[in-house]
Nucleic acid binder design. Structure first.
Length: 559
RNA sequence: UGGGCCGUCGCCAAGCGGUAAGGCCCCGGAUUUUGAUUCCGGCAUCCCCAGGUUCGAAUCCUGGCGGCCCAGCCA
């Protein structure tokens, strides 16, 4: 797909302005700073596309990957691995600039001592509950901790002993000494370091104290000489603290934090806490369940990196609250796949058709384009045999005139093959269920229109003996309401029970048994389907990434 | 309620004092061996509301209204 250049947004405007004015010596350095405590989702893709995108658009621009691993309790290498895989898969490259906040633990510690020496930080003995009490409320100022005026010497001694492991977890914290009466809660002497006897996935047991996000983030940015530190709106209130910390310290660079609104998507949730709950409870099969808004879920579903990048381009960057329609995401996938996805035919719910104008064992090899608008993609063979399968919903004994498919006594075109006429409907004498259709074909209609009449319907089909059986998984949104975040109660109990439908006994063209096409196929007239990782050559399994646009369903609803 | 932020078509989103871009959705119509694609055409006299400034305002000012975020030793 040809990628449309990104249009301007307020962040790109600021960056362009800074660049032309020589701010930060005209350098552009961004960073994507995930916490390795979960898998990346489409909201992260927005941030990745922004940070890596803006760096790529400007000569000399660079974007670092930095793991914000300051809270070992929740973090794990499983996540650092998956994050790298996902960023790479999306098409971005951090080259040799992979960093960890934990790379800076020693430096962070020294800066903390520097803050203490300046009288800008103190060790506080208040418990978490007491601290909350002392903090005040939105409308009342907080009160000073009894430890607020400790001497520099005592603070330094205590802080060193915190590091040395002399105090139990949670016994004391290091706090910034700012303003307990600030209307901004973040400025009421925020915690900088806490004691946690937890093994860190990278530093092991070396550290017993860990820096908080507020303390570590700005310094990490400065140490990497980040120029523009882009984050989401909920950090807006933290910016004064971000700036305060940088102002107190002697750092090589001065980054600037700019906030934009996070993505929310209809019919899904984006918080890692909720996604984690879905995974842990088993209502989804894992982080890569095709219903999940995770990068790995979208990938397994059949979304392409190109389509996700295009989606991120379309939604733009702003500060307004938003909830993007699912249709936009689907449109991005469809328009990517429309031009380059190989075509094939698959029958999801087979109905047997016997062409009794043909002799037993008849087989004719027909040729069909892999892509009707792109000859360069080549041809494939179709096997026209006496027994075929068509889609159950493509036949009706009687139907309104708008119905263009096969009806009893009527004609329809088999795609890439002949026009057939249904002569007789065979039913199970017991249940009355239709078991087969007896049809005749018109030999003059291969690559030619019938003479003297118009046949307007075209349906897909597959040879009975020359097709392979397999499974298809159809998906619907994980939640039935557009805004599941507003739902009360356990998120796990709100999941749409019909969000997955497994169809067995589907029939595919023979090549689908086992080939290694990486792009999803278009199952003609049905949608785009991607081979699942559970698929085997004996048992192909396909996920429907997205259906084709369906005008008929709208017409039918109006009837 | 203190502070921060946001409010332009059903959904995103341009616009930065000169008379409402674009995409998605939706609705017509043409082409079509995918009811797909493609192609044409339609879709905000109006920018949360009310005043004001100005020859002229979505853009500036004032006052309202509505929404989101913050009281973790999470990020």
């Amino acid at each position: 797909m040809t990628e449309t250049p990104q249009t301007a947004d307020f962040i790109r405007d600021i960056i362009a302005h800074d660049l032309t004015n020589g701010v930060n010596d005209g350098r552009l350095q961004t960073r994507f700073p995930p916490e390795p405590n979960g898998y990346l989702h489409i909201g992260h893709a927005k941030s990745i596309c922004l940070n890596f995108g803006v760096a790529a658009e400007n000569p000399g621009g660079k974007c670092n990957l930095r793991f914000d691993d300051t809270n070992p309790e929740k973090e794990d290498v499983e996540y650092v691995d998956s994050i790298q895989e996902d960023v790479r898969w999306l098409g971005f490259d951090w080259e040799d600039r992979k960093f960890y906040a934990s790379d800076y633990f020693a430096a962070l510690y020294r800066f903390a001592e520097s803050l203490i020496l300046q009288g800008k930080a103190y060790v506080c003995d208040l418990s978490a509950a007491e601290m909350r009490e002392y903090r005040g409320t939105l409308t009342e100022p907080g009160r000073a901790s009894p430890c607020r005026d400790r001497s520099v010497e005592e603070n330094l001694d205590l802080f060193r002993r915190m590091r040395a492991g002399e105090f139990p977890d949670g016994a004391r914290v290091l706090r910034a000494r700012i303003d307990m009466a600030s209307p901004n809660m973040n400025m009421r002497d925020p915690a900088l370091y806490r004691i946690r006897r937890v093994e860190h996935h990278r530093t092991g047991t070396e550290w017993l104290i860990y820096p908080t996000y507020d303390y570590a983030h700005g310094i990490s940015d400065a140490l990497e000489c980040v120029t523009h530190s882009l984050c989401t709106l909920e950090f807006e209130d933290h910016r004064p603290l971000y700036d305060w910390i940088l102002d107190q310290l002697d750092l090589p660079c001065r980054p600037r934090q700019i906030e934009f609104s996070r993505l929310s998507l209809e019919y899904t949730v984006m918080s890692k806490r909720k996604l984690n709950a879905l995974v842990q409870s088993g209502v989804v099969s894992g982080w890569d369940d095709p219903r999940m808004p995770t990068i790995s879920g979208l990938r397994r579903r059949g979304y392409t990196p190109e389509s996700i990048r295009e989606f991120c381009r379309c939604i733009g960057i702003s500060k307004s609250p938003n909830r993007v329609e699912h249709a936009l995401l689907e449109n991005c996938l469809r328009s990517d796949l429309e031009t380059r996805s190989p075509r094939t035919m698959a029958v999801l719910r087979p109905l047997k058709v016997v062409i009794d104008s043909l002799p037993e064992g008849y087989e004719e090899v027909l040729s069909a384009p892999v892509h009707p608008q792109n000859e360069a993609m080549g041809k494939r063979n179709l096997y026209f045999t006496r027994e075929l399968f068509i889609e159950q919903e493509d036949f009706r004994e009687s139907a309104p005139k708008q119905y263009k498919r096969l009806v009893a006594g009527g004609e329809v075109r088999l795609r890439n093959a002949y026009v057939i006429r249904c002569r007789e409907v065979i039913k199970d004498p017991q249940s009355g269920e239709i078991v087969a259709l007896l049809c005749e074909h018109d030999p003059a209609t291969l690559n030619a229109n019938p003479v003297g009449r118009k046949v307007q319907g075209v349906i897909h089909w597959v040879s009975a003996p020359r097709s392979v059986a397999g499974e298809v998984r159809l998906y619907a949104p994980l939640f039935t309401v557009a805004e599941p975040d507003a739902l009360k109660g356990e998120i796990v109990e709100q999941v749409n029970p019909d969000s997955i439908e497994i169809l067995t006994g589907c029939r595919f063209e023979p090549e689908l048994a086992s080939d290694a096409v990486s792009l999803p196929y278009q199952f003609e007239r049905l949608g785009y389907f991607h081979r699942d990782r559970e698929s085997t050559s004996g048992h192909p399994v396909f996920n429907r990434a997205v259906s084709l646009r369906d005008a008929w369903s709208k017409i039918e609803q109006r009837l």
